[in-house]
């Protein structure tokens, strides 16, 4: 128990009082681990992250059942201002930079939880992880490339020294090489800064490669969990999320099958 940083106990999330998105999700995140959350679109991965970070509230969502325990205090349905100050920072899906602020000003917004404290050192740390941002520091974020923006929003979150970093699809719409680079940096941040990371990804292969532990979500429920290496070896996961046949070969259209493998947990 000592090592658990965050625990979700059977939480349900309802939007606008009627639309139930999460139906009893339980998961536990150990300190200094990277935990991956994979699953198809609409499975409730992003909602899970928002339930943790408190960002459900502005979207009219609510945790109606269950508890979220972070460092021995319950944090469900708290305001984002409170939760970010506890050290939980979410990096939103689709990057969401401040388009009319320069790169450096964007990064400075990351200091909001520690207003008034010196931030020069944190800037140096961010530039150390993302040297690609240095030549662009004075240009407007709206004119930067997708890869630069992903680095920017991760750096922005890093400015707050998060104990728990929630990353929502960092690989979205990026070239494979850039994705590799981003994941390498995520791993480094986890190891060097000691940040615990929850990673939501469509790119299951990459996500399971760097994670310690993984959860699979479907239809607002956790349907499978395990150590990342075990998950990656699981035949169901291989078939549905990694795009491989049972034997481990790449699936090909020429191996037409007469029956379709079913997701047994549905």
């Amino acid at each position: 128990m000592e090592k658990t940083l965050l625990q979700l106990n059977n939480i349900s999330v309802v939007y606008s009082d009627v639309i139930q998105v999460l139906k009893g999700v339980s998961l536990a995140v150990e300190k200094n681990h990277i935990v991956s959350l994979i699953g198809s679109n609409g499975a409730g991965k992003t909602t899970t992250l928002k339930a943790i970070s408190g960002l459900l509230k502005p979207e009219n969502g609510k945790v109606t059942d269950g508890t979220i325990i972070y460092e021995a205090r319950t944090v469900q349905n708290q305001s984002p201002e409170t939760i970010t100050r506890l050290g939980i920072i979410q990096v939103l899906e689709g990057r969401q930079p401040f388009k009319y602020l320069t790169i450096e000003e964007n990064l400075r917004v990351g200091t909001a939880t520690k207003w008034g404290e010196p931030y020069k050192k944190d800037l140096d740390i961010v530039y150390h992880y993302f040297p690609a941002l240095i030549p662009r520091r004075k240009s407007l974020a709206g004119y930067c490339s997708g890869g630069e923006l992903q680095m920017l929003v991760m750096g922005r979150a890093l400015m707050a020294h998060p104990k728990l970093l929630l990353l929502d699809e960092p690989s979205l719409g990026l070239a494979p090489l850039v994705v590799k680079e981003i994941f390498r940096i995520i791993k480094r941040i986890n190891e060097e800064q000691g940040s615990t990371i929850i990673l939501v990804e469509q790119n299951a292969r990459m996500a399971l490669q760097i994670a310690h532990y993984g959860y699979v979500m479907e239809n607002g429920k956790i349907v499978m969990e395990g150590r990342a290496t075990e998950l990656a070896a699981n035949p169901d996961i291989k078939e549905f999320y990694l795009g491989m046949g049972v034997s481990g070969d790449m699936k090909s259209y020429k191996d037409v099958k007469s029956y379709k493998r079913r997701k047994r947990w549905l």
């Binding site: 502005p58 930079p97 388009k99 602020l101 917004v109 990351g110 939880t113 207003w115 922005r156």
Partner: peptide, 24 residues
């Protein structure tokens, strides 16, 4: 000033500002 930059960030993208803990 930091507070000035926070103000501009809220004008720019309120959701992202919230996610970073800006006191909107």
């Amino acid at each position: 000033s930091s507070q000035g930059i926070y103000m501009r960030s809220v004008a720019d993208n309120q959701r992202a500002a919230l996610s970073l803990g800006v006191h909107v």
